[in-house]
Simulated scan of single mutants.
Amino acid sequence: MKKSAWLPAVIAPVVVAGAIAAPALANAADTPLAGSHPTAADVIASVAKSSDAQYSGKLSQTSDLGLPELPTGSGGSSLEGNASDALSMLTQSHTARVYVDGASKQRIQVTQQLAEQDLVRNGSDVWTWDSKQREATHVTLPKDTATSLEHGTTTPADIAKQAIDAITPSTSVSKPTSTTVAGQRAWQIVLTPKSSDTLVGRVELAVDQQTGLPLRATVLAKGQSDPAFQVGYTSLSYGAPASRLFDFTPPSDAKVTTKDLSDAEHHAGHRGHAGDRGAAPTTTGTGWATIAELPAGSADTSSLDADGSALLGQVTKAVDGGRAIQTSLVSVYLTDDGRVLAGAVPVSSLVAAAK
């Protein structure tokens, strides 16, 4: 991993997913929601029924977190690649094409100026492709995996799943209201945290009335009326995409990396140690105020070159025991001993949790 790769590894997941939580919603309805007057529980439950949906669409993502807009890539410096791309995801708008044929076939295409990034899943085979770097990765997943795929963007379904899975009693849920997204009639529910310790003001989810497919997710920071983060479909058509879209062969001149995870379940006992750079974060707090912490060594900034150090100085500020970023929605704290703490909370909460 590049020394600069710590930044996207921490910031991007927290901004788009890890800061979102929702209450337990039970008593699911088994009938379509169109034309009825569903409860919020009915709407949330309908999302699970969309896992076998077949559709194609165009996705738009916007972010307004109070960060300055930064260039992508920097001519061979340590910012080139992952870190720069992750920052651009937080400061710029992006669009993607999405093709889905049930739970095991998906393709996401993120097109940038003179470049394209693809993620293609066909059963247990997953390919990622970066046309600018001429690099491809082939991952073999465990059988019957339900892994959700993300590559350079996040779909409304990803955020809705986080909201459903993070079950807490600390959220107010509105009654559904009718809206339209990408030409589809949808039910919108609003999730509002009761906690005063979070930066999140509310999360708005729009779910297709007929299929249960999440069509748009909007996250607003506390005290703000404009979205800090929003991702939603601008066009959508149901039906199976062409099967060829889920086949991928890398160009002959591509650098290809392979990863076989087909027997990953047999090695579960070897993951999560503090010294493992791939270790899962530990968490403190609950609900909307949850703080994730990566162990010492996760944010080794000592080897950053001049450009990398300049970027670090531009987007972070010195605080007690390290450096920190606080956006309107999420904070990240890099301790002097190399730990990384992040959450939808003020920096002061991260500094206190690190002691």
Rank of each mutant, 00 (worst) to 15 (best):
T154K: 08
T154P: 02
T155E: 14
A157G: 01
A157P: 00
D158G: 04
D158R: 02
D158W: 05
K161L: 12
K161E: 13
K161T: 11
K161W: 08
Q162M: 13
A166N: 13
A166L: 02
I167W: 08
I167A: 15
T168L: 11
T168D: 15
T168H: 13
P169D: 15
P169N: 11
P169R: 00
P169L: 02
S170V: 04
T171D: 12
S172G: 09
S172V: 09
V173T: 14
V173L: 14
V173N: 06
S174Y: 11
K175Q: 15
K175G: 15
P176A: 03
S178H: 10
S178F: 07
S178I: 06
S178D: 13
S178L: 11
T179S: 14
T179H: 05
T179W: 03
V181G: 00
A182Y: 00
G183W: 02
G183C: 09
G183M: 03
Q184D: 13
A186F: 08
W187D: 09
W187N: 01
Q188I: 01
I189T: 00
I189W: 10
L191K: 02
L191N: 03
L191D: 06
L191W: 05
T192G: 07
S195P: 01
S195C: 06
S196G: 10
D197M: 03
T198L: 11
L199G: 01
L199D: 07
G201P: 14
R202D: 14
V203G: 00
V203Y: 04
V203T: 13
E204Q: 08
E204R: 03
E204G: 00
A206W: 11
A206S: 15
A206G: 04
A206C: 03
V207S: 05
V207C: 04
V207W: 05
D208M: 05
Q209V: 07
Q210F: 05
Q210E: 14
Q210M: 10
T211I: 08
T211A: 04
G212Q: 10
L213W: 11
P214R: 07
P214V: 02
L215F: 04
R216D: 12
R216V: 01
R216F: 05
T218M: 09
L220N: 07
L220T: 03
G223Q: 10
G223F: 12
Q224A: 14
S225R: 11
S225N: 14
D226F: 09
D226H: 13
V231W: 01
G232Q: 08
Y233S: 00
S235N: 06
S235I: 02
L236H: 07
S237A: 14
S237N: 13
Y238K: 05
Y238P: 02
Y238M: 12
G239F: 04
G239A: 05
G239S: 02
A240M: 02
A240I: 06
A240G: 07
A240V: 10
P241V: 00
S243E: 15
R244K: 13
R244L: 11
R244T: 15
L245C: 04
L245M: 11
F248P: 12
T249W: 12
T249G: 06
P250C: 02
P250F: 07
S252I: 09
D253I: 04
A254W: 06
A254P: 01
A254V: 02
K255H: 13
K255C: 00
K255I: 09
K255Y: 05
V256H: 09
T257A: 14
T258D: 15
K259C: 11
K259F: 14
D260H: 06
D260L: 11
D260Y: 12
D260T: 03
D260Q: 10
